[in-house]
Design a protein around this nucleic acid. Structure first.
Lengths: 347, 347
DNA sequence: CTGAAAGCGCTTACAG
DNA sequence: CTGAAAGCGCTTACAG
């Protein structure tokens, strides 16, 4: 540190007490125009930047938010985390992240450290594997707590989740729009997200009086392998299928490979829709898959905004759902249709 | 705040001066065993957590690192950022992120804020589009600065980059290992990363005395579209090709589609290797593509470790390269071979 | 309108 | 071995 300039330096230069300097620099207090000018000029002249650490101590804030992740490097946690950090930065608040992946001892220790640091708020970030609500830890803190990509077992908490039902609805509406009437559903069985997507799908199909092809969803896991197996199974059945809504992109990719190998034309014979838009993040806009983007970056952004707002006033508890977006790809539009219908807005 | 307990409280409870309490709690100073015990007991009893803000002010540190991103939500910046934040958290240091994407005015303003916050170090995070070195901003700071996923134009700086040459070498070695002798290269033309990968490839081919198929790399951009176009072009030539090293996964996927549609068996007739392992991050271990993972999370981790170490002592300027990993997939091994040769270590 | 003082919660020479 | 004091750099009643 090249001896940073302090408030005292400014006050001295302006020949006033530092309390006066403090006031005008924060734009408050009755001060004569002349002294105000002198102080402002001195500050400008000396390139004064108030020491934030000192301000925090005096004000009893830290301008840092704690983030407790269940598994930070988890693929789908990354975009959420990036959204959180970016948004917080825009508000000049820092992020202190502790990853509780290792064990619960670490969790307890992290909570202590977070307290010691006098964080202004806490964000608990789930790992995207949505089986059950997290056990609420909000009582341990006297600052606002939000849950992202996870739910809490305490209804007084606030949590942010992708809108799985909307994802299902969007997929269904799109497939109906491109003329499909024999829509099958291949998904995973172990996940709340899967359930919501199926719910959304069924809502739309029911409203359109279009029955689900094959009578019921085929359930497996989230892998390409399962997508391939399911597609094989579908090929063996006689029932007509002209579209498959896949619970995620991996399943869709697995199905794609098998269908193509069997000579099925995509999307002409069978259209495919996935969920996640993971490949699409690479962002060249020439997606193979039509998919539903859960907008995880935005999810993180919303949670971060909520948290800082909650610092000021009361907040709305319960679930907040992040809307999703339809990303067009060749598996429902074909390269030609797609460019025709949406020449560029593909990202 | 439910009136947090302070050092004075502990000192009072232990009937000593707070300076004494401070000493023993930091484990220094000659103190009689009895008083030490009393103080420790009191601290324990009261569940004392020293106010980090106050310590920072007294010690002249902030335990926060600034991160200046060129484009935080950029796909490939996310894993790096996650690595940085996670690693910093393990060291109890917070991250304050400013995204300079918007305009350079923001950049200047961010630098002021970073100074005001008395950051302990600065990390400049590139956007993964590696055309030219960034203009060094290290002179503006009296704390250590590191560049990640970017290079600086000042050789006195330190920067962290994926090892593109190693990626090329790994791909080449793998393809030779699986018996290929007619290896083509399809890549982009606008990027330092592309150049390095090609360099690595050629080093290995030359050493093995295997000429590059088609004589020279086919250069386009990073899209699936280009991968498809290049594959079409290759199909039209008579020259034998039994493998294609693709500059990234998107190109590989584009090529894959065209080759399969043309009846080419993969990997039997033509093997494919990409770079990025983006899809593989989803992490089910049943990858379609064989690819080179640049280990971006680790890259962030290294940069973060470096930065905190640089706070203590001298550091090594110049380039630091992050090693990459080979991720096996069906495009070189086939489902059977792959499981046989590497039953589980696929992630 | 402006200054003198106490306070935020710690650390660290300096005496004794 | 232990306490009294000054200091980190601000903020904020309280006087005048």
């Amino acid at each position: 540190m090249a001896k940073a300039v302090t408030l005292s330096d400014v006050a001295a230069a302006a020949k006033v007490d530092l309390s006066t300097a403090s006031r005008v620099l924060r734009g408050e207090g009755r001060v004569s125009p002349q002294t105000r000018q002198r102080i402002l000029a001195a500050a400008e002249e000396l390139d004064f930047r108030p020491n934030a650490q000192a301000q925090f101590l005096a004000n009893g804030v830290s301008k840092t938010v704690g983030v407790l992740t269940m598994n930070a490097p988890a693929t789908f946690a990354m975009p959420v985390l990036t959204g959180v950090t970016t948004t917080l930065g825009q508000l000049d608040v820092a992020t202190l992240l502790y990853d509780a992946r290792t064990d619960s001892g670490v969790l307890k220790e992290s909570v202590r450290k977070l307290h010691a640091r006098r964080i202004d708020g806490l964000l608990v970030l789930g790992d995207g594997i949505l089986r059950a609500p997290l056990h609420s830890i909000s009582q341990g803190f006297d600052v606002p707590v939000a849950y992202a990509y996870a739910t809490s077992d305490d209804p007084a908490d606030a949590w942010f989740m992708p809108d799985g039902v909307m994802a299902g609805r969007m997929a269904a509406e799109h497939l109906l729009n491109v003329g499909r009437r024999h829509i099958a559903h291949v998904t995973s069985n172990s996940d709340i997200g899967a359930r919501d997507r199926a719910t959304g799908l069924m809502q739309v199909l029911r409203a359109a009086e279009v029955p689900l092809a094959l009578g019921k969803p085929l359930k497996g896991d989230w892998t390409r392998r399962w997508g391939a197996a399911a597609a094989t199974q579908i090929l063996r059945q006689k029932a007509p299928v002209d579209a498959i809504f896949c619970g995620n992109d991996q399943i869709a990719l697995g199905a794609y490979g098998v269908l193509r190998a069997a000579g099925v034309r995509i999307p002409d014979d069978v259209a495919l829709v996935g969920v996640d838009n993971w490949e699409g993040m690479v962002g060249n806009g020439d997606n193979l898959l039509t998919t539903i983007d859960p907008n995880l970056f935005e999810l993180g952004r919303s949670a971060a905004r909520f948290l800082t707002a909650a610092t000021e006033g009361p907040y709305e508890a319960g679930a907040h759902y992040q809307g999703c977006s339809l990303i067009l790809g060749e598996t429902t539009m074909g390269p030609g249709d797609r460019t025709a219908s949406d020449p560029e807005g593909l990202i």
